[in-house]
Amino acid sequence: MPAERGPRRSRLTRAGRWVVLVGFAVALAFPFLWMLVTSFKRTSDLYNTANDPFLFNEPPTLAHLKLLFGETLFLRWLANTTAVGILVVVLTLALAVPAAYALTRLTGRWGPRLGIGIFLTYLIPPTLLFIPLSRLVARLGLQDSLWSIILVYPSFTVPFSIWLLMGFFKSIPRELEEAGMVDGLTRFQAFLRLVVPISVSGILTVVIFTFTLVTQEFVYALTFISSEAHQTVGVGVPIYLVRGDVYYWGSLMAACLITSVPIAILYNVFLDRFIAGFTVGAVK
């Protein structure tokens, strides 16, 4: 249905809207611009406080990118992060989707309470958990292995995802699955062929949310992994591009830019579904 047009606003109101819109757009785009400019700026240009910080006062340079790609294992870190991200997403979905379904549909009155209980575990900060978890990682012999974080990350992605998906599954009428079961499906098939496709917004939200959490996680990755080749972006970049009190600003900014742009694009592609995922059940 086409949205109804409101009454015509005065010029001032419309101008006001544009000011707000443009203001926010500029504020939000600014970090990206700053990262872009800094990535190609000579260090001497950057550090000269007499120069205009927004412009190239000296010719741009590729030195920072050369440093990033040539002298650090940045590409390796990117690959590590992506691999860990994908595996954690898969693990999270494999655990959270069936768990959330079971908690909403099959456990009666205790399901929702248990769901809240599980969500509460998400609120325990990693700064407390990393000590016992490091014992666990050591016991399993996973120190300095990406498998340590692949195993540990679901401990905070799964509870949140269960809670998110429970909201989704609750909004799907029970009659749909019953119709499917009368039509010839088992409960599991009804879940796979009806509940999962209908909740695709929620599942996408879980995917993006989990992936983002993985890329920005710091404490566990720092604690469990020591060698350069096994770092993720979130840890490798600050460790190897901040040496003592020397900040390699150009390379740091380039690393940030390269990592954040794909995620920003992913967010925007699924923006509508993402919002639907977080607001499900809010309005019926």
Partner: peptide
């Protein structure tokens, strides 16, 4: 199970697959 009973059902909400 319902699927093995040779029945078909129309629900109050129709329960069409959206």
């Amino acid at each position: 199970a319902p699927r093995d009973r040779g029945i078909a059902m129309v629900f109050q909400s129709y329960a069409l697959y959206p």
